[in-house]
Amino acid sequence: MSAFLTYLVSGVAIGCTFALVASGFVMIHRVTRVVNFAQGTFAVVGGMTTASLLGRGLPHGVAEVLAIVVCGVVGLLVGAIAIGKPGTPPLASLIITLGLAIGAYGVEVVVFGDQPVSFAMARGATTLGGAHIQWQYFLVMGATLVTFTALALFFERTYVGKALTACSSNPYAARLAGISVLRMGLLAFALGGMLGGLAGVLITPLQPVSFDSDAVLAVNGFAAAIFGGLMRPGTALLGGLVLGVSESMVGGYVNASYETEVALALMLAIMVWRSARTPVSVEEAA
């Protein structure tokens, strides 16, 4: 029983980190219809920047916030290149973000080195129902809950949030209303960057990140995001949890090395299942 609980809690925590990465995907895609391949990169930059700042003596709290801001700026940069030029089709933007993610490898190696880094956040653990649970897990879950609530409120209640939704809902009408679809898109990228950075800040104490960790994070985040069709943050959270828990269970009870395969296979299955329900014409109109 305690083993089950351990796997469950760690699965939920990891799932929360996937959900945070996923929320960045959703934020950007919802507004710009672009799938941002560099979403994993934001997480890596977030984690590595925090570790670097902490190493230079900055206190906890300041280092994390600063790292997240940096990620927001990075997100803005990625967005500017990916969608800044008018008339760039979304698939071209995808390839551009892929290129930028690769370029980021180079920058990360130069700035942070090519070794994995980690740092400690919430230290220690507690016992719950016989299971050994790190405090960091609770921190991750709490932060995720707060973030997703804030996201939901942002989209449902604020004027800017509604304008962002309008941009993807009907870009033509948004333009007529005077909403700059480009500026909203850049805002979405900046927010997506910060969400990715937050994910990285929370993940790194759990598992070290290095410059090439972004692929696995991106794939998992994407898998979670497609639960909600890349449009709804709430479903992305659910997706993240499902993924995290399944991976954890498979890793614990079957074989640790099959974790990624499970996530990927699950993602493929979901994508194929969803596409069977959406005719191509609907997607093309999108």
Binding site: V35, P90, L91, L94, V219, M267, V272, V280
Partner: peptide
Amino acid sequence: LRGHYLAFATLAFQLI
């Protein structure tokens, strides 16, 4: 799958 879904799917396939 179309567009970005296919891109990720082929990537996932390779990793698997």
